[in-house]
Every structure is written in C-alpha cells, then in structure tokens.
C-alpha cells in the first residue's frame, strides 16, 4: 500500500494515459475508416420510404463502400430526400442514369443500400444531382428503360417491374391509361361471347342428335351414312362376284374348242380375239372401278346417286355377262347370278 501511495502519480498517469490513448486511437481509426478526412461529393438521393434508413447508412457498389446516406427528410412530395455522400475514390463511378436500391432485412429492418451504375457508358454525374432509388418514379423509369440492372432478388425485381408496369398503365397522363382494365373487360366480354356460342352449339347439337326431333338432321345423316356404307359393302361383294364370273368367262373363251366357235370364227380374228381383248381391258378397269367405289365410300350422301348409277352399269354388265354365259353356243350358263342379282335388288337403299 505504501508503495502504491509512493508511486500514485505514476500509476494514475499510466492508468489515465492508456485510457486516453485507447479512446483517441479508436476515434482516429473510426475517422479513417469512415474516410472522415477525405473530400466527399454530395448528391441528392430519393427514396420511397425511410424504412431501414439511418444516419450514415453505407452505400455499396460491387461490395465496396462508396459512400453514406445522411440527412434524410420527408419531402413535400412524400418521398424521402437524402444526401448521398460519395468518397472521392469512387467519384468516377457515379455516372448519369444511375440509381440506388434499398433492400430492407425483414427481421432486423436494417437496410442495405446498393448503388446501381448505369449499364451504358455515360458522363460523370455532376455534384448535387439527383440519384433516385428504383422504387420512386424516376428510378422505375430507369429500370424500365434498362438503364440500370437490378442485382439480387429476382422475385423482388419482377414485382418491382410489374408494379411499375401497372402504375404506368394507371397514370392519368398515359395514353394507355386503364389499358389493363380495358383488356380485362374485353377478355371478360370475349369469354361471355364464347360461352354464348358454346351454349348455342350445344343446343344445336342436342337438336341434331335428337332422334325424335324433326331437326334431327345429324342423326339422319349418320343413319344414311350407315346405310350407304352397308350398300357399298354389298356392292363390293357383288363386284367380286362379277369379277369371278368374268374370270370364268375369260377362261371359257380362252380356248374356243366348241363347234359354234369354229363355225362363227374359225380363225378367232373376228370375234374371239377382239372379245378377249375387251375382257382383258374390262378386267383392268374393274380394280379401278373398285378403287373409285372406295373413294365414293368416303363421300357424303350425295354420292348415293352416283353409286346407284354405278350399280345400274354393273347390273347391265352383269346382264351382258349372264347372257353371254347362258349362251349355249359359248358357255355353260347358270342360275347363281340371278339369285345374287335378286339379293342385290332387295338390299338397295331406298
């Protein structure tokens, strides 16, 4: 204790000196850290609100602190007007058409302010000029013109863009004022018209499909088409039979050994050969006729008349062949064709 009293002044001096050194070195370090001795270029900043803003809020550009926000007040236009002090090292980064982006932490309400430099090379912005945040009209305009590109939360950026679009559409001085709502109204009208049309179609379809109704045309068409298809099937079967008969006739006439043939055309030049040629050509035509028939199968009820004509022709051809086959001088004849022809007549469409 005596030693302590003896060296009181030295102890007290050291005790106080260390404290003073700590305080002054801390203050000096802080001043250097805050670039207090550097010249600052002051710009005007404009924000939508002061949420998260505080005195000396740092402003970052690509991770570097390029300045601070100070002296913010609520302006007459209900926007926050603030001083943006830029350190001299970053003066060249402040070019025209640049903006600020203030992101607020939802938990702490602390803000991070980011400087968004214009994507286009521009002149260095004059001191005292306005640098808007992207949530004020001037900033939204820069964002819409793609002068600045927002970095960070893409969802937020989309929402800001959408908000800007909607706001622009609702502006009084915008020639497209209310375009969004007009589009929505038009869309609603179109949907209503479409619904009416759909109802009409449904009603018509009901009428057409109603078997008992007088207006059941569609049903009738389907029924007719069914009959036509059945007739065509019958016709095709008949054609096959004709072709078989034709083959039989050709085979009969290919070797004309009978006495009649020898008496009528001994050389075969006058009757037999021309007739053979005729049959051969007819044989070639018949597949085409079948194809044509199939083609007709795909047509509507108007083709029915054509089919009937074709049937008439085929009937005549059949009669010709039948008469030829029944000729006792040429071939053996038969009754099978008559039965088929009878059946054909029975199944004809009314």
């Amino acid at each position: 204790m005596k030693l302590k009293f003896r060296y009181t002044e030295k102890i007290i001096g050291t005790f106080l000196l260390i404290a003073v050194v700590i305080v002054f070195s801390s203050i000096l370090f802080l001043l250097l850290n805050q670039k207090f001795f550097e010249r600052k270029y002051v710009y005007k900043a404009k924000f939508l609100d002061a949420v998260g803003l505080s005195q000396n809020s740092p402003v970052y550009f690509k991770g570097f602190k390029i300045g601070i926000i100070s002296n913010f007040v609520l302006g007459d236009d209900n926007y926050i007007s603030a001083d943006f002090e830029v350190y001299s090292d970053f003066k060249d980064k402040i070019i025209v058409k640049s903006a600020l982006y203030k992101a607020v932490n939802v938990i702490t309400q602390a803000s991070t302010i980011e400087f968004l430099q214009s994507v286009e090379d521009g002149e260095i912005l004059a001191e005292g000029s306005l640098i808007p945040a992207i949530d004020v009209p001037e900033g939204k305009q820069l964002l819409a013109q793609n002068r600045v590109k927002k970095i960070g939360d893409p969802l937020n950026s989309m929402l800001i863009n959408l908000e800007g679009l909607v706001e622009n559409l609702q502006k009084d001085n915008n020639p497209d004022e209310g375009a969004l709502f007009r589009a929505l109204v038009n869309l609603a009208d179109a949907a209503e018209q479409l619904k009416k049309l759909s109802d009409n179609i449904n009603r018509d379809l009901d009428k057409l499909s109603n078997k008992e109704s007088e207006n059941g045309a569609l049903y009738q068409v389907v029924v007719n088409l069914n009959d036509i298809t059945r007739d065509l099937k019958t016709t095709t079967a008949l054609t096959n039979q004709i072709l078989k008969k034709t083959d039989l006739a050709i085979s009969n006439y290919s070797k004309p050994d009978s006495l009649g043939i020898k008496l009528i055309d001994p050389t075969g030049e006058n009757i037999v050969n021309p007739l053979r040629k005729t049959f051969t050509q007819l044989n070639e035509i018949l597949p085409k006729v079948q194809s044509f028939t199939e083609y007709l199968n795909a047509q509507t009820t108007d083709i029915t008349l054509v089919i009937d004509d074709l049937k008439t022709v085929l009937r005549q051809v059949q009669q010709t062949f039948e008469s030829l086959n029944k000729n006792p001088l040429i071939g053996p004849g038969g009754t099978e064709m008559n039965q088929s022809y009878y059946e054909l007549n029975q199944k004809r469409p009314k």
Partner: peptide, 16 residues
C-alpha cells in the same frame, strides 16, 4: 491534488 490522486487510485485503478 493528492486527495484527487488517491481518489482516482482507489476508485479507478484498484477497481480495474
């Protein structure tokens, strides 16, 4: 001053 120093010694240094 002696009273002051001793007060600082007692209140400050000895409480460090």
């Amino acid at each position: 001053r002696n009273i002051l120093y001793r007060q600082i010694l007692f209140t400050g240094f000895e409480a460090l």
